[in-house]
Design a protein around this nucleic acid. Sequence first.
DNA 1: CATCTATTTAGAAAATTTTCTAAATAGATT
DNA 2: AATCTATTTAGAAAATTTTCTAAATAGATG
Lengths: 104, 104
Amino acid sequence: MGFAETFKALADPGRRDILTMLRDRRMSAGEIGSHFDMTGATVSYHLNILKKAGLLFEEKEKNYIFYSLNTSIVEEVMVWLADLRGNTETGVSEGGNRDEKNKG
Amino acid sequence: MGFAETFKALADPGRRDILTMLRDRRMSAGEIGSHFDMTGATVSYHLNILKKAGLLFEEKEKNYIFYSLNTSIVEEVMVWLADLRGNTETGVSEGGNRDEKNKG
DNA sequence: CATCTATTTAGAAAATTTTCTAAATAGATT
DNA sequence: AATCTATTTAGAAAATTTTCTAAATAGATG
């Protein structure tokens, strides 16, 4: 894993659309692909990018493969961003901030 | 702006390091560059990517250019991710979720 | 004003990403 | 077992990103 892969995966608008589609329910690769003007092979490529980034779960059933969103990775990214921003609520820094700051 | 540019900017480890360096204080291009094994021109390229993504502020002083973090863009990304994850606290969807879900 | 310091811009090479077509895999159906 | 359906893998072409060197800009200083 690693944030590089995750942010890279999130950088593509089509891949973000895929994640949004999977927000509420799982979908097969084919159903996902039907929303795009792309080859199935290309959709498969994008699904693989998202999967390697840890953003998708995969379940094989019959000849289908169903994909769903891994929200825990989404949350990991949010935590990283929250630390970058600086923790405005608590006045306490989680990461590498060793100074007196964040008065609140 | 747009999320594509922002996520793409965040995808590079060096660029994330730059943002982390700027978490607490502004720094000049040269000071930023001194932390990396790269040409000044390359650092300038990365700073420009971050700036175009909306992640940096720029202040010119003397012959220096100081960069600092734009936390409001960081927060916009966090909001997008929070919506993707689904709003687990309130049970109310901000985005395109029109179903009964999120029991709490 | 010559020139030094800080930084960016230009242009090209190298590396990576994205896309396609064609072929491979694998389970389902006849 | 033949073949149909869903999806992935392979390999190559096209597009984009990253990096460098060299040159340009711009303000500061002797």
